[in-house]
Simulated assay, not measured.
Amino acid sequence: MRTPACSTSRHQRGAALATALFFLVILTLLGLAAMRTGSLNLRLSQNESGRMDALQNAQTALESVRAYSSALNVLPGSGYLQSCAIGSSLNASNLSTQQGFSCPGASANSALMPNTNYQNYLYVSVRREQVNGGDYAPVSAIREGDSGDRYNLAAFTIVAGYDRVASSDTLAQGGAEVAQGVYVKVAKIRGLNQQ
């Protein structure tokens, strides 16, 4: 005769195997979810790093244009593109279509480009702006205490961008564009030096 305890232990052996398999499947799914989350977080951090690199490269180009002494020469008139440059790895028609940036050949000046590893992906422009319909703004309109009788201000807008979005290499990093307004003091009276 069989004892009841013996038949119960035989049924438990199969239940233990099923329970172990169930927990193994759960642990596998949790591991896969953790791997997927880690992969997503890595891609997000790479995107943020690319965005910051693009912004820093664009800012470097803008600062380079500001430091280039001939970039902000005050020429007659206003409301025109004074000079510009596009890196050799960029497509001018794509920049025009996507960013609204154009650089006519007559205004192109390769000396505006900073000498960096990324200069082929940079674009810059210097635009001479009109101020209230005129070529100059009075100094007193910007800063009190300076004589508006001796100087005017010529307004410029510098635009600098970095575009490595459509790059065919494996280091596609994204793109960024920065702009800054700059005023240059211009003497009203001949013989006065600019400060």
Rank of each mutant, 00 (worst) to 15 (best):
N57V: 00
Q99D: 15
S78P: 05
F156Q: 03
A160F: 04
G134C: 00
R143K: 14
Y151W: 08
A141G: 14
S70Q: 12
Y118M: 09
N94Q: 14
S70A: 15
G105W: 02
Q56D: 08
S78H: 07
T157A: 05
S96P: 02
V74H: 05
E48I: 15
N57T: 06
M52C: 06
V126E: 11
S83H: 07
Q82G: 09
V74L: 06
A154S: 14
F156P: 01
A106W: 07
R51S: 14
L44E: 13
S102V: 10
F156E: 03
I86M: 14
L95H: 05
G134R: 09
N120F: 02
N57F: 11
N57C: 01
A85Q: 02
I86H: 12
M52N: 14
Y121L: 12
Y80T: 03
Y80H: 05
Q98F: 07
R43F: 14
Y68H: 02
P114L: 03
S69N: 09
A141P: 01
S110C: 02
I142W: 05
V74K: 06
E144I: 03
T116S: 14
Q119P: 03
G100F: 12
R143T: 10
P104H: 10
S125V: 07
N109R: 12
N47I: 12
S64V: 04
C103P: 11
V65D: 02
A155R: 14
G133C: 04
N152M: 09
G100P: 07
S45G: 04
S125N: 14
A67Y: 04
Q82P: 02
A58G: 04
R128Q: 08
T97H: 08
Y118V: 10
Q119C: 00
S49H: 15
S147E: 06
L55I: 01
N152P: 00
A54K: 06
A71I: 00
N57G: 11
Q82I: 03
A54N: 08
S78F: 10
Y123E: 06
D135E: 14
Y123S: 12
V139G: 03
T97C: 00
R43E: 08
P138F: 05
M52W: 15
I158P: 01
P138C: 04
A92T: 09
Q56M: 14
S93T: 14
N115E: 11
R51D: 09
M113E: 09
N109M: 05
R66G: 05
S88V: 08
A54Y: 05
Y80V: 08
Q46P: 00
L81N: 02
L62W: 04
F101T: 04
L90S: 05
N57E: 14
R51V: 01
N94E: 15
T157N: 11
N115A: 13
S102L: 04
A154P: 01
G77A: 10
L72K: 11
G79K: 09
Q99F: 07
R51G: 09
R66L: 15
P76F: 06
Y123T: 08
S78I: 02
C103L: 11
Q130F: 10
L122K: 01
L122H: 03
N117S: 15
G148C: 05
Q56A: 13
R43P: 00
Y151K: 03
L122P: 04
D149G: 09
R127V: 11
V124Q: 03
R127F: 15
S93N: 12
P138W: 02
N47F: 08
D146F: 13
G134Q: 13
N132P: 02
M113V: 04
R143P: 01
Y136K: 05
G134K: 09
P76D: 13
R43N: 07
I158S: 08
P76A: 15
E129A: 10
